[in-house]
Design a protein around this nucleic acid. Structure first.
Lengths: 148, 148
DNA sequence: CGATTTGGTCAAGCAGCTTGACCATGTAGT
DNA sequence: ACTACATGGTCAAGCTGCTTGACCAAATCG
C-alpha cells in the first residue's frame, strides 16, 4: 500500500460522499423543499425516530448547543418541527418533526434511493451492498461532521 | 433496495469520509503542522504536481476566486507556498509549494497511509483495494466539496 | 486596433458558528 | 431538607470564511 494509494482512496471517498450529498439535496429541492440546506437533513435524521433535545442534536451534529438551537429555530419557523415540553424533564424541550418534516424526510429517502439505485446499475446490487457493509465496518459512529 | 438502505449507505459514507478527514488532520497536526485546517490540505493537493493559479484552485475547491485568493494569502503568509509570475501569462500568478509545503504534503500522505493501513488490517488489503476501485467508479471527478 | 474575455485583487456584507453570561430545573451530599 | 453543583436552554456579542460587486491589467478576438 503506497501513500499515494491511501490519498486516492481518500479522494474517492470524499468525491462519493460529496456527490451523494449534493444529489440528495437536489432531489429534495426538486420535490418542493426549497428552503433547506443539507445540514437540516442531518438534524431531521436525528429527530425522526422519537424526537430529541437540543443538546442531543448538538452532540449528533458536532456543534455547540447554541448553534443547534439556532438551527431548530429555523426549522420550527419553516414548519418542519416543533418544540414540545419534555415529558420527563421540565428543563428540556423535545423537538419533534411535523407532518411537513416527515414528508421531507421521506423525500430525502426517495432521492437517496434513486442515486444509489443508479450505482446498483453500475456495480450490481451485491457490490453496493458489500460497499455499505465494508464502510460500516471501518466507520465509527460519532457526530456527523462535514468532510472538512 | 429499500429507501432506508440507501440512507444507511449514505451515513456510512459520510462517517468514513469524515473520520478519515479528521484522522489525517490529526496526523498532520501531530507531525508539527499545527496551523492548518483540512481545507488547506485540499489546496495543497491541487498545487502539488506543478503549481496552479488562483482560478484553478477556486474551481478545484468549488469556491469563488476571491475565497481561493484569501486561502492562498494564508498559506503564503505561513510559508507553505509562494506566488510566482506565471511563465506564460503575465496576468496570472503561479502558486507553488515551498519545501515546507511539500513536507506537509508528505506528512498528510503518511497519516492517510497509517489510517488506511488500519483499515487493511480489518478488511484485508484486497478488500480495501476493491473499495477504492468501486468508489472510483461511482464518484465523478469534480470540485472537492464539504460533505454538506 | 478597438471590443470583449479572462486572471486577479480590493472592499463590503453576511451566514453560521463560537465563546461567555445567565436562568431554571434536576441531582447529589450531608 | 437545605445547600452545592450539574445540566438543559436561551440571550448577546463577536469572529471566520465565505459571498457579491466593482475594478484594473493582460490576453484574445473581430
Amino acid at each position: 500500500m503506497q501513500n499515494s494509494d491511501a490519498m486516492a482512496l481518500f479522494a474517492a471517498l470524499l468525491a462519493a460522499a460529496g456527490d451523494l450529498t449534493q444529489r440528495i439535496h437536489d432531489g429534495v429541492t426538486a420535490r418542493g423543499f426549497t428552503d433547506l440546506r443539507p445540514a437540516h437533513g442531518f438534524a431531521f435524521a436525528r429527530l425522526a425516530p422519537d424526537g430529541a433535545t437540543v443538546t442531543d442534536l448538538a452532540v449528533h451534529l458536532g456543534v455547540t448547543k447554541q448553534a443547534a438551537s439556532q438551527l431548530v429555530d429555523e426549522i420550527v419557523r419553516k414548519g418542519y418541527a416543533e418544540r414540545r415540553p419534555h415529558p420527563e424533564d421540565a428543563r428540556a424541550r423535545l423537538i419533534v418533526l411535523t407532518g411537513r418534516g416527515w414528508a421531507c424526510t421521506r423525500a430525502a429517502e426517495e432521492a437517496a434511493a434513486e442515486v444509489v439505485g443508479g450505482w446498483a446499475e453500475l456495480l450490481g446490487e451485491g457490490e453496493v451492498h458489500a460497499l455499505r457493509e465494508r464502510l460500516a465496518r471501518i466507520a465509527p459512529y460519532g457526530p456527523i461532521r462535514p468532510a472538512w
